[in-house]
Every structure is written in C-alpha cells, then in structure tokens.
Design a protein around this nucleic acid. Structure first.
Lengths: 249, 249
DNA sequence: ATCGTATGATTGTCGGACAAACCGGCAACT
DNA sequence: AGTTGCCGGTTTGTCCGACAATCATACGAT
C-alpha cells in the first residue's frame, strides 16, 4: 500500500454559537440536579455577567431551555425557575414531530393497539383506590356527555390518561400522551359521524373500570383490546381513511 | 339561592410575549404545510420587517422553533430552513423530561417489556429484505465487538432501532427511541460487570433475526421477550438497583 | 387589618452597531 | 481546464444602550 491510498480526512469542525453553549451549561446543571426543581435562576443580567456574554445571548439560551421545559416562569414571577417538563408540553413536541413525518391514522391506531392493552393490564395490578376513583370518574363524565362532542372527546382521552396514571409508570404515561393528542381530532369526527360510537365507548370504559376494580388482569387487557379495536371499526364506518395523515390539533 | 352564592370568577388573562407569538405564527405555517420541508425562511431582518417586531424578538422565536426541530440551519447555509424534527433530537427531549421526573430503571425496563415484543411481532410481518439486512448487520456488529464496551452498547441499541424501523411504523420507532437512550448508560455498566451478558445478548439477537427472516411472528415475539427479561437478570447480577433513577447520557 | 403608594429590580422590546462568515462572480495564474 | 485569489453584498452572531411595563417589597395612611 502506498501512502497515498487513504485520502486525507478531517472531521467536520463544529462551531457552536454562544447561545447554545450557555443553554447547554445551564441545562447540564439542571439535569445533574445541581440546580434543584423550583429553584429560581439568577436574573438575565446576572447570568450575562457570569457567562461573560450579552444579555441578548442569555435570552436566546433561555428560550431554548424554556421550550424544552427545563425552565419556566412561575405565574406571577419574573425570574425563571427550574421546572420538570410537563407531560403535555413534551408530548406536544412529539406530536408535532409525528405530524411532520406524515404519520397516518393507521400508524397511531396500531401503536395504540400495542401499548394500551398492556397498560390496562399493568394498571389492574398497580392501581390504588384513588386511581380507580379517577378512572370511574372519567368514565362517568364521558357517559354523561351525551351532547357536547368536544367534551366527550376530551373525557375519552382523559379515561386513557387516568388508566395510564394508574400504572404508576411515568414512561408509559408519557408514551401514550402523544398518541392521545393525535387521536383527539379524528375522534371528534368519528363520534359525530357514528351514532353508536358513544355507547360502545361508554360500555368499554365501564367494563375496563370494572375489571380494574376487580384487579382482573386478563379482563382489563381484553376489554382494552376490544375498546381500541372499536375505534378502528368506527373509523371505517365514518369512512375516515386510515391512510390519511394525522393533523395537529 | 341568593345571587351571592357563586363567587365571581374570571379566567386568568394570558399575556403572550411577542417572541412566542412570532414562533407560533411561523410554526403554524410549517405544521400546515404552507411552508414546505426544506424551504428556506426569509432572513431575520426580513422576518422582523414582516412581523413588525425587532430582530432580537425574531431571534428568540427562532431559537424556540429550532429547539423544537421545526427549523434548522442546513450545514453551510446561513438561512434557516424548514425541517422535520429528527427522531433522536425529539427523543432527547423526552429523555430529559423522564430524567427530571425521577424515572427509575424499573420503569424503563417495564416499558421495554411492553413495547418491544409487539414491535418484534409487527416487524416479523412487515419487514422487507432490506430491513432484515440491517437487522442482521447490527447483530453481527454487536457480536464482533468483543472488546469495546462503548461500541457494543451502541450496537445493542442499534439492533432495537433496526427492528423498530422494520415495523414501518414511525410512531413505534419514535416511542422506543427515548427508552433506548435511557437504557444505554446502564447497559454500559451491565455489560462490563456481567461477563456472560455479551453472549446472551448476541444469542437473543441471532434468534430474533432468524425469526424475523422466517417471518415467525410468535418466535420473534417470544425471543424478544426473553431478550428483555435477560436485561433484568443482568441488572440484578450486576447489582444495579432497579429503583435507581436513570441519568442523562 | 386592608389599602395605597413609593422604590428598586427585572423583563420584554427596541434601535443601532460591527466583525465574521458565506455567496457569487470575476480575474489571475498554473 | 482547473485552481486560486480577491471583491462586494448578504446574513448571522454578538454586543451595547435604552425605556416602558410589571413585580417585590417596604412603608405609611386609612
């Protein structure tokens, strides 16, 4: 082999602007728990002084952290404080990503068929009395909403959320949230177009809640499976094309 | 009932700063496909002129969109262009959120036991020849890495990713990504401490790949189940406390 | 004890400024 | 022909200084 064989290669040099370095520096301190939850950040001018950059630069960094949910302004306060990202905010980012990637209803539905039954199963094992109260409350609120579509959709999603919370597994709760967000718009259409949808959903919710109460693992799982499968039937009856791309809110 | 019964209530008035309005305006145009993927945004000065705000305000809005992955700067270009959020970037946000919420290894592992087997099952149905090639390649690369821990961990995660891709369901692929990110650090420790871990992982990967090749739905699922269960055993042997909080990267 | 006010701190937004980097084209050179 | 050097225009990254509006706090008035 001659020395010429391998062409000279260099790694791409990465220039990180100051605002991203500042954001990374603050973010790392938050992630490492060096800055604790709820703790207030110094004012922008002070941060600018400490980092040796301009206040504008600090502000750009703060916007980045803010949209990641690592810092937020507590209502009625000017100073930023460290926060744990809220599930719905994080999920919204995921939802937007999925929308941008042309995800179809079918994909969302398929994901639901995969994760919801095991969630119900886990919830049957771990639910507390309090969890159960929340779940039945959501089911009852859905059943009571015979008129308002908007609220019915909301409580249908809320039912899933309360079951997710009952697993006491935050990963699962967060994983299902984007799916629910993407489900809602189509559910709105479906409930309006399919008369029998409401009663079928209400029945499934009731059966699931009963199984959870009885700690009936298999029952919870199989009723949840039915519940999800019903959605697909509803889509077909409502003639919603499953290959259609989901839309944001 | 006297008229005094219901206390006067007002909804909280929400003041949205200009930078967030600008970000929302641009973001909406992107989500609605009015601005197409890859299209370049006008320069900051022009945006400032159009929105009637200062350039600094536009910049703060851009930072927000940027960290959401909706816009990014293409390498070697100054103008921002519309982009679809990359999976790993989105997943990193989710991972950070989970870390901040004190998620434990047990929760991550439990989530893996729930979503990975169905993913393997789905992959057995939908995988193409190309998918299969990627999966076996990842498995072979893992098996070949008998020395370097870092790479072994990487290819162990890459194996999951390639199986996820084989489902051709983007929702599932994106849902598993944060789990893999959180798994990696602990996997690093585990592989180092448990001598037999490598061979057990390699075997499981091989069996899963074979099942996928044969389109053996049940085999793929059950071997994936074993594969995940093995991780837990590994944790216990390595004496990694499952109640420990996961850490970021 | 509640309310009104004064004071200081902090943010949101603005205007202007400048160096560095990038782009396109054109001239010069090998 | 292909490479190199240079030029002018554009755009970003960063800085500086400024000001009104809002919030925290203390203090005094009712």
């Amino acid at each position: 082999m001659s020395v010429e064989d391998a062409p000279v290669r260099f790694d791409q040099i990465l220039m990180e602007p100051a605002y991203r370095k500042v954001a990374a520096a603050i973010g790392e301190r938050i992630l490492s728990r060096s800055l604790r939850e709820g703790e207030r950040l110094p004012p922008e001018t002070e941060l600018a002084r400490q980092f040796g950059v301009n206040r504008s630069t600090v502000r750009e960094a703060l916007r980045e952290l803010e949209s990641g949910g690592l810092v937020k302004r507590r209502p009625g306060s000017k100073l930023m404080s460290v926060s744990r990202p809220q599930h719905d905010a994080i999920a919204e980012g995921v939802s937007r990503a999925l929308v941008m990637h042309d995800v179809t209803f079918l994909e969302v539905w398929e994901a639901l068929t995969i994760i919801e039954p095991p969630i119900a199963e886990a919830a049957a094992r771990t639910r507390t009395a309090e969890d159960l109260a929340g779940i039945t409350a959501a089911a009852e609120r859905f059943a009571a909403q015979n008129a308002a579509t908007e609220r019915a959709v909301h409580y249908a999603a809320e039912f899933f959320r309360s079951v997710g919370r009952a697993t006491h597994n935050q990963v699962l709760g967060l994983a299902q949230e984007p799916l629910l967000q993407l489900l809602e718009p189509s559910l709105r259409v479906m409930i309006d177009k399919v008369p029998q949808a409401r009663s079928r959903i209400a029945t499934a919710q009731k059966r699931i809640a009963e199984a959870l109460q009885a700690r009936d693992v298999d029952g919870a799982r199989s009723w949840m499976t039915k519940h999800i499968r019903d959605f697909r039937k509803g889509y077909e009856i409502a003639k919603i094309d499953l290959e259609l791309r989901v839309t944001a809110d």
